[in-house]
Simulated scan of single mutants.
Amino acid sequence: MAVPLADGKSALRRQLMLGAVGAALTGGSAFAQVPAPSPSSTVGDFPNRPIRMIVTFPPGGSADAVVRLMVPRLNEKLGQPLVVDNRPGAGGNVGLALVAKTPADGYTLGLGAAGALTANASLYAQMPFDPVKDFKPVGMVAATPFVIVGHPSLPARTQRELIALAKAKPGTLSIGHGGNGTAMHLSAALFAQMADVKLVEVPYRGSGPAALDTMAGQIQLALVDLQASLQQIRAGKLIAFAVTSAQRVQMLPEVPSVAEAGLPGYDSTGWFGVVAPAGTPAPIVARLNAEINAALGDEQIKAAMRNLGAEPAPSSTDAFEAYIQSETKKWAKVIQTAHIRLD
C-alpha cells in the first residue's frame, strides 16, 4: 500500500531539524534520560527532542527487529533519536495502554499488531484502551505471512488433498500454532471455517516449537511464520501446503497462497503498524507517515526485512485506519464463530 510522500518543500519540512544522529537502540530503562518537553515545542519545530517508540513485543522478536532496522534511517531524517522501549504483555495491551495515556504530541508512538489493534477487543471482556477512540493510526510497517506445513508422512501434498483428508477424518488431524489468541491461532481458525473442516488445535509458545513438533511427527500440521519453518521446508522435512497471504511470497515462490489453492478470499497475515495517541496533530502524523514510508522504500531495509520473513507494507494513514476497521470486523466474526476467549 504505497503512498506519495509529503512535499519536501512544505513549510513544515523547512522548519524541521535535519541534523543526523547515531542510532539509538536502547531499551525502556534508558528512556528515563530523555529530556522533558520543551515549553516552546510546537508542531512547526517537530521533532525537537527524542521520540519514544513503545514496541509491544520483547527484544529480539520479529517486530522488534523490524523497527530496529528502520531506526538509523529515521534518526537521520527526523534529526532526533528514536528510542525503542519494549513493553510486551497481554497480547500487546500493556504497551498500547501506555501509549493511550501519553500526551498527543508525537513524542510517544506505539508499534502495535493485529492482536491489540483489532482482535483483542473480541478476545478480552475488558480492554485497557479503546482501539478506535484512543489512537490515531500513523502507518503500516510490515506484514508477516504465515505458512501451513505438515509432516511428510501425511498422504497429502496439496491444500485440496489436505482438506479432503481432513473431511474424511474429521477431528483427527492436529494443527499447532503460536499460542492462543495469536494471529496464527486466528489464521488457523479462519482456515478451518472456510474449508469447513474440524481440526484439533494445539497451542504452543511461538512458531518454533510448533514447527519442531510437526517435523518430529508429534502433530500433523502447523500454521507458523516463515522464519520458523523455511529451512525445514527447503530441506524436505516439512511439506508447505500454502502461505496465508493473499499472494505468494518471495521467500517461497513455489508455494501457492491459501486463496489460490482453493479457498478464494482467504487472506491472513501478522502485521505491525505505528499508532499515536488520539488527537496528535495531523501535520505531525503526516510527517511521521512520510518518513516511515521512505524508510520502508529503502532497498537495503526492504531486503533485511524480507530476510526476517517480513514484507514491507507502506501505507497512507487513511488506508491503515480503514484496514484496522475492516480487520476488526473480520476477526470479531471468526472469534465469535470459533468461541475463542482469553479471559
Rank of each mutant, 00 (worst) to 15 (best):
V3G: 03
V3T: 14
D7L: 10
L18G: 06
V21R: 15
A23S: 07
S29F: 12
S29T: 09
F31A: 12
P37C: 05
S40M: 01
V43S: 02
V43M: 00
G44H: 02
F46C: 00
F46Y: 11
F46M: 00
V55S: 09
P72M: 07
L74R: 13
E76N: 06
K77P: 01
P81E: 03
P81W: 04
D85V: 07
N86C: 07
P88S: 06
A100D: 03
A104N: 08
G106I: 06
L109A: 01
L111G: 09
A113S: 05
G115F: 08
A121G: 04
L123N: 00
A125W: 03
F129S: 05
P131W: 14
V132P: 02
A142V: 13
T144F: 01
F146L: 12
S153M: 11
L154A: 15
P155S: 11
R157V: 08
R160M: 02
R160H: 01
E161I: 09
L162V: 12
L162Y: 11
K169W: 13
P170A: 07
P170F: 10
I175L: 15
G178H: 04
G178R: 04
G179E: 11
M184G: 15
S187Y: 14
F191I: 15
V200P: 01
Y204F: 15
R205M: 08
L212K: 09
L223H: 02
D225R: 10
D225C: 07
Q227P: 08
S229E: 06
R234D: 14
A235K: 12
L238E: 02
A242G: 13
T244Q: 11
Y266N: 09
S268P: 02
G273K: 00
G273Q: 00
A276M: 08
P277M: 03
A282Q: 14
P283I: 05
L288G: 10
N289G: 11
N289W: 06
N289C: 05
I292P: 03
I292N: 03
N293I: 06
A294Q: 14
A295L: 10
L296F: 04
G297E: 11
E299W: 04
Q300I: 12
A304Y: 05
F320A: 04
I324A: 01
S326L: 04
K329S: 11
K330W: 03
Q336M: 11
Q336W: 03
